[in-house]
Design a protein around this nucleic acid. Structure first.
Lengths: 255, 255
DNA sequence: TTGCTCCTCACGTCACGTGAGGTGGC
DNA sequence: TTGCTCCTCACGTCACGTGAGGTGGC
C-alpha cells in the first residue's frame, strides 16, 4: 500500500503522469485511505509498468485505453504491429543520426571543389549568369540531400558538355528562358532534347540520380519549370515524347 | 521558385509545419510574389532539410533557432551532443521493444507455475491468508519487472523455507503484523532476522535481486512497510543492525 | 467558372508541466 | 510547529492540426 509519490519515483514518472492515466481511464483508480490519498498495491504498479512500456513504444494513450480491455488475441496482434512500428522508428533514427553526422562533417552549404570548377567552367562556355546561379542552387540541393551522388553526377554533366551537340542544347535551353511557350523554337528544342536524352541514357528511364528513392529530382524539375513558362512547356513536351517512345521517364535537364 | 505546397510535398512535411518554422524564426521568410505567395529557392529547401534533420533527431524548435545563428564550432559541439542523445534513445527503444515482446510472450499477470506452487505451499506451512496474498502481489511485481530473475529468487525462497529456523522467522514475521511497534517481541524478531540474513547472504549486501539496477526491491520493501507499523519498525531495526555489523545492506524479507 | 492553392488568424489537440489554494502525515 | 506530500481544478506548453473566411492561379 504505497502512495502515488512512491509509485512515481520507483517507476521513474511524475505523479501528474499517473493522475492523467487515471483521468483518462488507462489505470483504474486505486483504494483511497481515510484522508483521500491514493494507495497502490503491486497490482497497480504492474498495470502502470505495462502502460509505460506501451507509452515508451509510442502508442497514443487513447489506443492504450482500448488495449487494456482488449482480448488476449487482439492485444497480441496489436503488439506485433507496435513492434514493427518500433523497428522502422529505430531504423529512421539511425538514418537521422547518419545525416546528422554528414551535416557535422562538411559545411553542407559549401559546395565540393568539383562543382565549383564545373560552375566556373560554365562562364567560359557562354552560359548566362542567371543559368549559373540556378545551377548553383540546384547543386546545393543535390549536395544537401545526396552528398554521395554529387561526384558521379557532376562528372556526368561535365562529360556531357564536351559533346558539341549536347552543349548546344544546354545553351539553347538557357536562352529559351525568355521565349513565349508557344513559339515553334520551343517545340523544336524539346524534340532535340528528347532525342539527346534517349541517345545518352536509353529509354529505360534510368537517368542518373533518379533512382534515389526521394523526390529531389522532382523538386529540381519543378524549380526549373517555375522559373520560366517556356521551360515548363519544354518539360511537358519532352515527357510526352519520352513516354510515347518507350516507358514513362522523367525529363531534362540533369541535374 | 517553388510554392510552399510543392516544397512541403517534396520534403514530406505539411505547409503548416513550414509556416510554423517561419513564425518561430527557424527558417527565413522567402521572397513573396505579386500575390503574396511565398516563393522558395533551393537555398530555402536546404535550410528546411537541415531543420528537419534536427527535428527528427528530437531537438526542440527553440534550440534549433539558436543553432541556425550559432558559430561552426558551437554547432559541431551541439551535434555531438545530439548524436549521443540519439544513440541512447535508440538503445532505449530497443529495450522497450524487448519488454514489449516479453509482454506479448506470456501473460505477465499470470504467474509462472513455480511461483504458484510456492504460494500453495505456504498454506500448508501455516502462513496467514493475508501473508499469501501479499506475497502474490509482490511476486507479480517481480515477474513484471524482472521475469528472468523469478526462477532463481523463488528457488532461493523455497530453499529458505526448508530450514526450520528460517521458516520460523518468516512465520513470526507474518504474525508480527498486528503487534505494536514498540513491543519487545518486535525488536527480538529484528535481531533474529538480522543474524539470519547475515548467516544466509553474508555482510556484503548482495541479497538476491538487489543488484538489478532498479528500485523494485525498494518498492517491495516500502509496500511491505506500509502494510504494518510493526513491519516498518522491524525494517528500521534490521537495517541499523546490518549497517552496524558491516557495510549498508537492505533488509528483509525477500522477495 | 471551377477546383486547387495560397493567405492570415484563431482555436483544437496530445501528453503532460506548473502553479493555486487547501489539507493530511511525521 | 515545520517541511513534505497529497488533493483538485485550471491554465500553460510544445509542435503542430484544423477549420474560417477570404483571395489568386490555371
Amino acid at each position: 500500500m504505497i502512495t502515488i509519490g512512491q509509485l512515481a519515483r520507483y517507476l521513474g514518472v511524475s505523479t501528474k503522469t499517473i493522475r492523467v492515466y487515471h483521468a483518462k481511464g488507462l489505470l483504474p483508480e486505486p483504494y483511497r485511505d481515510a484522508s483521500g490519498y491514493r494507495r497502490y498495491t503491486a497490482t497497480g504498479a504492474i498495470a502502470l509498468i505495462k502502460i509505460r512500456t506501451l507509452v515508451e513504444a509510442g502508442v497514443p494513450l487513447a489506443r492504450i485505453r482500448t488495449l487494456t480491455t482488449a482480448s488476449d488475441a487482439v492485444l497480441r496482434e496489436a503488439i506485433t504491429d507496435i513492434d514493427a512500428d518500433l523497428t522502422t522508428r529505430i531504423r529512421r533514427l539511425r538514418d537521422t543520426r547518419q545525416r546528422l553526422r554528414e551535416l557535422a562533417a562538411g559545411r553542407p552549404d559549401r559546395l565540393p571543389v568539383t562543382v565549383d570548377r564545373y560552375l566556373r567552367g560554365l562562364e567560359g562556355l557562354g552560359f548566362s549568369a542567371r543559368w549559373i546561379a540556378l545551377q548553383r542552387d540546384l547543386w546545393l540541393l543535390v549536395h544537401a540531400t545526396h552528398p554521395d551522388l554529387v561526384g558521379d553526377l557532376v562528372n556526368d554533366q561535365m562529360q556531357a558538355l564536351t559533346d558539341p551537340t549536347l552543349r548546344q542544347i544546354f545553351l539553347d535551353y538557357d536562352r529559351a528562358y525568355d521565349l513565349a511557350p508557344d513559339e515553334p523554337a520551343v517545340a523544336a528544342l524539346a524534340d532535340r532534347m528528347a532525342a539527346a536524352t534517349i541517345g545518352r541514357y536509353g529509354t529505360g528511364g534510368d537517368l542518373p540520380g533518379h533512382d534515389t528513392g526521394t523526390r529531389i529530382p522532382d523538386l529540381i524539375q519543378s524549380a526549373v519549370n517555375a522559373a520560366s513558362p517556356a521551360w515548363r512547356r519544354i518539360d511537358t513536351l519532352v515527357r510526352a515524347e519520352l513516354h510515347r517512345r518507350a516507358r514513362p521517364a522523367p525529363g531534362p535537364p540533369a541535374p
